[in-house]
Simulated scan of single mutants.
Amino acid sequence: MKLKELIPLLTIVKTEGNPEVEITGIQMDSRKVRPGDLFICIPGIPGLQEDRHLFAEEAVRAGAAALVTEREVGAGVPTLQVPDARYAMAVICAHYYSYPSHDLKLIGVTGTNGKTTVSHMIESILKHAGFRTGLMGNIGTKIGDTLLETDINTQEPPVLQANLTSKSEVQLHRL
Results as ranks from 00 to 15, higher is better:
Gln171Tyr: 13
Leu10Cys: 03
Ala59Gln: 10
Ile42Tyr: 00
Ile107Ala: 10
Pro100Asn: 08
Ser119Pro: 00
Ala65Asn: 04
Ala85Asp: 12
Asn163Tyr: 05
Glu20Cys: 03
Val21Ile: 05
Val13Pro: 00
Val82Pro: 05
Leu80Ala: 07
Glu72Pro: 00
Ala59Glu: 14
Thr110Arg: 13
Ile143Asn: 06
Gln171Glu: 13
Gly76Ser: 14
His53Phe: 02
Thr150Lys: 04
Gly76Thr: 12
Gln49Thr: 04
Val170Ser: 05
Glu22Phe: 00
Leu38Cys: 08
Phe39Trp: 06
Arg132Val: 15
Lys167Thr: 02
Ala94Ile: 10
Arg34Glu: 15
Leu175Ser: 05
Thr165Ser: 14
Pro100Asp: 09
Arg174Lys: 10
Gln161Trp: 02
His53Val: 00
Thr11Phe: 02
Asp145Met: 13
Gly63Trp: 01
Val170Leu: 09
Val159Trp: 01
Leu160Asn: 15
Val73Thr: 04
Ile107Gly: 00
Thr117Trp: 03
Leu160Arg: 15
Arg86His: 01
His128Gln: 07
Gly44Lys: 14
Met89Leu: 07
Asp151Thr: 05
Glu123His: 04
Lys105Thr: 15
Pro78Ile: 08
Ala62Gln: 09
Val68Arg: 02
Gln171Ser: 13
Ile45Asp: 15
Val109Arg: 07
Arg34Gln: 11
Leu6Pro: 02
Leu54Ala: 09
Pro78Ala: 07
Arg86Lys: 08
Thr11Ser: 12
Ala56Thr: 10
Val159Asn: 05
Pro35His: 08
Gln171Arg: 12
Ile12Gln: 06
Ile7Lys: 07
Ala64Leu: 03
Glu70Lys: 14
Glu58Met: 05
Gly63Met: 04
Thr15Lys: 13
Ile7Met: 05
Met121Trp: 13
Thr116Gly: 13
Thr24Gln: 08
Lys4Arg: 14
Arg86Ser: 01
Thr165Glu: 08
His95Arg: 13
Thr117Gln: 06
Leu126Gln: 11
Pro100Ile: 15
Ile42Leu: 11
Gly25Pro: 03
